[in-house]
Design a protein around this nucleic acid. Structure first.
Lengths: 201, 201
DNA sequence: GAGCCGTGCCGAAGATCGTCGACCACGACG
DNA sequence: CGTCGTGGTCGACGATCTTCGGCACGGCTC
């Protein structure tokens, strides 16, 4: 009976407006009002599609993660496993402004999740997406026989994942000490350590 | 001529009040009002000692870091270097509620530093404190001959530091996957990887 | 011992934020 | 062609950080 709008499309539109604001002015500028202005709506209109600000940011974050997942699925990922793993994991490092902004949003969500169980749950799902890529990368290395027998794959995945997020954090807080080249080099060094021969059981 | 107050002592008192609030209710509850109430002052009084909320949190963070540094300096750190390094680094992991809360504050500051150059500068100094401890730990291992010749000490320090902060982040966002025991084990695994024989140049 | 005046502190106000409720308008269905 | 539900706006509320004007206390000077 009433006017019908494609909610999913509208949500995506608002999420993109949010990313434009974030890319331009940083996550601190991602207020409900500024995002609404960017999208050309009144602040109240957003409430029809996102009950709360955190919902919008989570949706936007899931949006880019889903896009990343599509890119991962689309690419063939042939070639040397070692270089492939490096390329896959570099996707998550803040090597350019865009990914740096995404890391800021990620940080905002992480902090917010400390007090919002709903955000916590959905952030965990998104986190699983990243963890899944790390798993794939490590498994591919192991399947290629590049990881020493006896290595604890579960622990290696957790360690690599932690290193990835730690590097991201350091890139945010100490940009001058962590230029893109150093981020890549440290990731490479870790993969070297992972793939070099180590004592089996 | 006027009433004289020991500003440093008052600042320390307010910082301790802040930590009580944070410990009890989390960093989100660390508003100027709640901290003032906890300390028994009016919100305006805080402005005499901290120009802004970020200043208070930074001071409080530096406060605990300074205390940690004192503990580090006080302890003799004798015994096997490998176990010593583990103990030193575990100080920075959120293994109990107190350190978890500290990590939340750290996260808040990191986010805030993205828009506040002053906070950014002072946070960098605090970050150097942590980096210094990591350096000491790795240097001690190297001095004991436990790190393979040819290893890039600078890179190893950066990698260990990133791992430390990454583990902290994961402990905050995925507590159920990162209980204290697993945090310790992953740190130990990394130190094992660092101290096990690796290819020299 | 008396007065001055600067420090310390408070209360209220300003600005901005997220969120909510009341109200209007359009348009698809009966 | 009328109905009524969805979509949208406006205004307001409460909370936040920060700023401003004013009051009071208490050391220093005379």
């Amino acid at each position: 009976m009433p006017k019908i709008v494609d909610h999913d499309a509208r949500r995506a539109e608002l999420a993109e407006a949010m990313w434009r604001v974030v890319y331009r002015d940083g996550v601190a500028a991602a207020t409900v009002r500024s995002i609404a202005a960017e999208a050309g709506w009144s602040p109240s209109a957003l409430r029809h599609y996102f009950a709360t600000q955190a919902d919008l940011l989570i949706f936007a974050m899931e949006h880019v993660i889903a896009q990343s997942a599509e890119r991962f699925a689309a690419e063939s990922w042939t070639g040397p496993p070692r270089e492939t793993a490096q390329r896959m994991l570099e996707e998550f490092l803040p090597l350019d402004r865009q990914r740096r902004r995404a890391a800021e949003v990620w940080l905002w969500l992480t902090l917010h999740a400390q007090v919002d169980p709903a955000a916590q749950a959905r952030l965990s799902e998104a986190d699983d997406g990243v963890r899944g890529v790390v798993d794939v990368a490590v498994d591919a290395l192991a399947a290629a026989g590049l990881v020493a027998r006896g290595a604890d794959l579960g622990a290696e995945k957790a360690r690599l994942h932690a290193l990835l997020d730690g590097l991201t954090l350091h890139a945010l807080v100490r940009t001058e000490l962590m230029p893109p080249g150093r981020l890549r080099a440290l990731l490479a060094e870790h993969l070297d350590s992972l793939t070099s021969a180590r004592d089996g059981p």
